[in-house]
Design a binder for these strands. Structure first.
Lengths: 339, 339
DNA sequence: TTGAAAGCGCTAACAA
DNA sequence: TTGTTAGCGCTTTCAA
C-alpha cells in the first residue's frame, strides 16, 4: 500500500471480510485468535491506522474534549491543562484548546463545537455561560460539561473547585496570627464570582478577629501586575497605610511588592504580603511569596474524570460538586509587624 | 427539530434537495439568491451546524492542527500557543495539544495522528523527530509539518526560530561591555541543539573579546530552577568565582540568583546575571532580570502561517527557514563589576 | 440552477 | 465465528 491503507486492504490480503478486520482490530472476542493475529500482523505491516473521521461519523463520538479558558496565555492554567491532558490521554481522548478572551461569540462557538461533533464534552473554566440564544431553547444543562476553577452559580453542571472563601480566610488569619491588625485587600475584578469569594474570605477573617476594615482598605484590581502596583500605591497614599496586604492573586502581589520597594518599604520588614495561586516560580521570587496554593493538576485531573463519568453514563446531574483542599504556603513575604 | 438537525431536515423544509442545501450553505454560486436566503434562514432557525465528522470524512480534512511540545506545563510555550491559536482560528482551524514528555512512543503517536486524519498538519516544538519505524519507509519529510523553536538539523521541514547563537553572543557582549571579564555560563542540557547553540554564542563572545573561559566556568544544567541553584553553588566554590553569569534560560537564572543570595552575594552588586527567554513576570522578579527576549507570540503566528501555506499548496519544501529577531532586555540584574 | 446518486471508511445489526 | 449489508451526514460528480 503506497497510500494510507484502509480496512478493506487488510481484509483483502487476509482473505476475510472487513467486518472481521474491524472486529479483530477492536479486540472483539468474536474472532479466533488465529485470525486476529494474522490481521494484527498485517495491520502492523501495512502501518494501518483507522481513519478517525469515518470512525467518528459511525460511532458518533469524536474522542476529543474541549478545554475552554479565558486566556490561553495565562500560566495559571498550565498545570490544570497538564492534569486534564494526562487523564484525557489515558482514556483515549485528545484535548482541544479553546480560548474565549471573554468574547461572547467565542463562548457560543465553543458550545457549538459540542453540538457539531467536534468534541464529546467540555471543561469550562471561564466562569461564564454563553448568553442564551435568541430563538432556540436556551437549555444547555444536558450537555456534557464540567465547570472547573471558576464556578457558575446555578448552572446545573458539575463543578470542580476550591473553597475560595475559606482559603482567603486562612490567608488573612495567618496575617492576623502574626500580629497584624491593619490588613488591606487588593481584590480581583469584582463583581466576578471568584474575586467576590476571596474578598468575602478577607472580610470574614477580619470580622472574626474583631478587626475593622478601614475606608480605602479594599481596592479593586484586575489580576494583572500593573494593577497590583497601582493598588499598593493607593493603599500607601492613605493617611494610615496597612502593615499587611492580602492580594487576590500572586501576580498582583508581585506588583504590590514592586510598588512597595519603589516606595522604600521593605517586604516583609515594613509590610507583609500574601498572594493567592502559588504560580510557577513563586518560590523563586524575592522574597519568596507566602501564598495560597491550589491543587491545580488535581483540579485538571478531577475535572477530566468527572467529564469521563458524564460521558460514560450520560448523566450530568449525577455528578457532585467537588471541592478540593488548598494549602497556605508560608514563605518569606510575611512576618510580624514592626513594633 | 428536537435532535440535532441534519442537512436533510433543512432540505425537506425548504422543499429542495440536500445537494442544494449543501451548496447554499457553502456559499456556492450555483444557487439562486432566493433559495440561498431561504435555506440560510432555515438553518439559523433550526440552529443547524454541519456535522464535522461527516464533512471531514468526505473532504478528507480535519481542519485541526496539532501543536506538539515537550511539556505542556512549561509556561514558556504559552505565548507561542497563543500565537498559534489566534492564527489557526482565523483560518478556521482548531488546535489540538500534544505533549510528549520526551517519550518516543508519544512522539510517534502524534505523527500518526497526522496520518489517521486527526489533524491536517503539525507544529513540532520538541526538537526531535521520532525514531524511524522498523519496517516502514522512514520518510516523514512529505508530511505537513513545521518545526518551531527548537530546530532539527537536516529534517527537511520548514523552520521558525531565533538565532540562539547570536542572541547568546549579544547577552554576553552586554556583560563584557559592562566591564566583566570573569564570565561563567550555566548551560542547558547539552548536547541538545538549543543548549549547544546558546553555549556556542557564549564561547564566541568570549573569544571575540579575547577572554579565556577558565576551567569550571561552563556548567551544565537542565533548564530547571534547582539546577540553576546547584550550578551557581558550583561556580562559587571555584577558587576564582565569576563576576557575571550568563544562564541559558530565565529559570536557571532565577535559581542562580537564589543561590547567590543564600551565599551572601548581591545581584547585581557582587554578581551580574543574564537570563534567556524573558519569561512571563520576569520583569516582576527582584532584581528585574536582564534577559534575551524571544518574540514568542510571533513565533507561534509565523509557524502557523507557514503551516497554512504548506496545507494550501502542499509543498513542504517550498517554505523557507525563518529566523525571527530577538532583543536583549537590559534590566536590573546586571551592572558593572565591583572595582 | 437543481436533483439523484455515489461514496468517503468505518461499525454494527442481522443472518448464516 | 464469520460475512453481508446498511447506513453515519456530508460533498460532489453527473445528468437533467
Amino acid at each position: 500500500m503506497s497510500e494510507r491503507p484502509k480496512i478493506k486492504d487488510i481484509a483483502e490480503r487476509a482473505g476475510v471480510s472487513v467486518a472481521t478486520v474491524s472486529r479483530a482490530l477492536s479486540g472483539s472476542s468474536l474472532v479466533t485468535d488465529e485470525t486476529r493475529q494474522r490481521i494484527n500482523a498485517l495491520a502492523r505491516e501495512l502501518n494501518y491506522r483507522p481513519n478517525v473521521s469515518a470512525r467518528n461519523l459511525r460511532t458518533r463520538r469524536s474522542m476529543s474534549v474541549l478545554l475552554v479558558v479565558r486566556d490561553v496565555g495565562n500560566p495559571f492554567y498550565l498545570e490544570i491543562l497538564k492534569g486534564v491532558e494526562a487523564t484525557a490521554r489515558e482514556a483515549g481522548y485528545a484535548v482541544l484548546m479553546g480560548n474565549t478572551e471573554n468574547d461572547p461569540d467565542r463562548e457560543v462557538e465553543y458550545f457549538n463545537m459540542l453540538r457539531d461533533g467536534h468534541a464529546d464534552g467540555m471543561i469550562l473554566m471561564t466562569g461564564k455561560l454563553p448568553p442564551p440564544e435568541p430563538g432556540e431553547s436556551a437549555d444547555l444543562s444536558h450537555l456534557p460539561v464540567v465547570i472547573a476553577l471558576e464556578m457558575i452559580e446555578g448552572s446545573g453542571f458539575p463543578h470542580v473547585q476550591i473553597d475560595n472563601v475559606a482559603a482567603a480566610e486562612a490567608a488573612v488569619d495567618h496575617l492576623i496570627a502574626l500580629g497584624h491588625r491593619r490588613i488591606a485587600h487588593i481584590a480581583g475584578p469584582l463583581p466576578e464570582v471568584m474575586a467576590l469569594h476571596r474578598r468575602d474570605g478577607y472580610r470574614a477573617a477580619m470580622k472574626a478577629a474583631g478587626l475593622a476594615v478601614p475606608e480605602g482598605y479594599e481596592v479593586r484590581g484586575d489580576y494583572l501586575l500593573e494593577s497590583g502596583e497601582a493598588c499598593a500605591s493607593d493603599l500607601f497614599a492613605l493617611p494610615e497605610p496597612p502593615t499587611a496586604i492580602f492580594a487576590a492573586n500572586d501576580e498582583m502581589a508581585y506588583g504590590a511588592i514592586h510598588a512597595l520597594r519603589r516606595l522604600g518599604r521593605e517586604v516583609p520588614g515594613d509590610v507583609s504580603v500574601v498572594g493567592f495561586d502559588d504560580l510557577y516560580l513563586s518560590k523563586a521570587f524575592y522574597p519568596p511569596l507566602t501564598t495560597v496554593s491550589q491543587p491545580r493538576a488535581d483540579i485538571g485531573r478531577t475535572a477530566m474524570s468527572q467529564l469521563l463519568n458524564v460521558l460514560s453514563d450520560g448523566d450530568v446531574a449525577a455528578e457532585p460538586a467537588i471541592v478540593l483542599p488548598t494549602t497556605l504556603n508560608i514563605r518569606g513575604s510575611t512576618a510580624p509587624p514592626r513594633k
